Simulated scan of single mutants.
Amino acid sequence: MAKFMTNTFAAAAAVGVMAITGSMAKADTWRYAFEEAIDEVQGVFAQKFKEEIEANSDHEVQLFPYGTLGESADIMEQAQAGILQFVDQSPGFTGSLIPEAQVFFVPYLLPQDTEKLSEFFRSSKAINEMFPELYAQQGLELLVMFPEGEVCMTTQEPVKGPDDLNEVKFRVMTNPLLVESYKAFGATPTPLPWGEVYGALQTGIIQGQENPMFFIESTKMYEVTDVITCAGHNNFTTAVMANQQFFDGLSAEDQEMVQAAMDTAFDHIIDYQSGLHEESIEKIKEAKPDMQVNVLSEEERTPFVEAAATVEETFLEMTGDSGAKILEQLKADLEAVEN
Rank of each mutant, 00 (worst) to 15 (best):
K125F: 14
G70W: 02
V41W: 01
A79T: 14
F93Q: 14
F105C: 10
L117R: 10
H59T: 08
L110G: 02
D88G: 13
G139F: 10
F64S: 04
F105A: 13
V44F: 00
M153D: 08
E52C: 14
L140N: 00
V151M: 15
F45Q: 00
L110N: 03
L143F: 06
V103A: 15
D74M: 09
A126L: 07
V41E: 00
E71C: 06
L117W: 02
Q78S: 11
E52A: 13
L117Q: 03
Y135W: 11
Q156T: 14
P65F: 01
A101S: 15
G139I: 08
I83M: 10
L142V: 09
I98N: 08
G95M: 02
P147C: 02
Q42L: 08
E100R: 07
E54Q: 08
V144K: 11
E115F: 03
E148C: 12
A46S: 05
L142Q: 12
Q62V: 15
K48A: 08
S90F: 00
M130T: 04
P65C: 02
F64N: 02
Q42W: 04
T94V: 14
P147F: 01
Q80R: 14
A81F: 12
N128I: 11
Q42F: 11
K50L: 01
P111V: 13
F104T: 07
E129W: 05
P132A: 06
F104Q: 05
F121E: 12
Q156S: 14
M145C: 07
D88Q: 12
F45I: 11
Y108F: 13
S96G: 12
K116G: 11
E157S: 15
E133Y: 03
K116T: 09
M145N: 11
S124C: 14
S90W: 01
E148G: 11
H59D: 09
A73D: 15
N56Q: 13
K160T: 14
Q47G: 09
V87G: 12
P91H: 06
M76Y: 05
P111D: 08
V159K: 09
M153P: 03
S118W: 11
G149S: 03
Q47E: 13
G43H: 01
G67H: 06
P99A: 05
E150P: 06
L117S: 04
V103F: 12
A81S: 15
S118I: 07
A55V: 08
T114K: 12
V61H: 01
A55C: 08
